[in-house]
Simulated scan of single mutants.
Amino acid sequence: MECDVCKKNSSQIEIFACDGCKTRLCRNEVLSLINASEYKVLQLKSKRHLKFYCEKCTKGESFSLYQSLIEEKQKHIEAKEKIISCLETNNKELLQKIEMLEKKLQNTQNESKGTFSVVLIKPVDEQDGILTKKEIRQNVDPSKIEVSKFRQIKGGGVVIGCSDKNQIKDLRTQLEKQLGQKYTVEVPSLKKPKMKIVNINKDDVGLEDSDSTIIDLIVKWNNLFDGEDFYMKVLKKSVNNFKNINLILEADSITHNKLLSQERVKLGWSRCRVFNHVSVLQCFNCMGFNHYGKDCKSQQICSRCSGNHSYKECRSNEKKCINCIKSKKPNENLDVSHEALSRECPCLLRIISLYNKKVDYLSDCV
Rank of each mutant, 00 (worst) to 15 (best):
K92P: 02
N290R: 07
K75Y: 03
L171W: 03
V119G: 01
K236N: 10
Q178G: 00
K236S: 10
G206H: 07
S62Y: 14
K47A: 13
R350P: 01
I153Y: 04
N28Q: 12
A36L: 12
P188I: 08
K328V: 04
E61K: 08
I136N: 07
S85F: 09
V234H: 03
S337T: 04
C272V: 06
C324Y: 05
K22P: 00
D226S: 12
V280F: 05
S46E: 06
C86W: 10
T108N: 13
S210M: 11
I200L: 12
T132E: 04
S148V: 15
L235Y: 07
L131K: 13
R343T: 13
N90A: 12
E146I: 11
D360F: 11
F150M: 00
I200M: 01
Y292K: 09
S11F: 13
R304N: 09
E55A: 14
I130M: 05
V278L: 14
Q127T: 09
Q178P: 02
S342G: 07
K196F: 04
I121H: 05
H277E: 09
E38M: 06
W269D: 03
E88S: 14
C314V: 09
H49S: 06
V124C: 10
D170N: 03
E78K: 11
K182F: 08
H76C: 05
E111M: 15
V205K: 02
N199I: 04
G206F: 09
K104Y: 03
T213L: 11
N166D: 13
C324R: 01
H256P: 08
K103H: 13
S11T: 08
E332N: 01
K165G: 00
N331G: 05
H291K: 08
R304S: 08
E71M: 06
G293K: 11
N240D: 06
K73V: 09
N356V: 05
K122H: 13
D229N: 10
F242M: 00
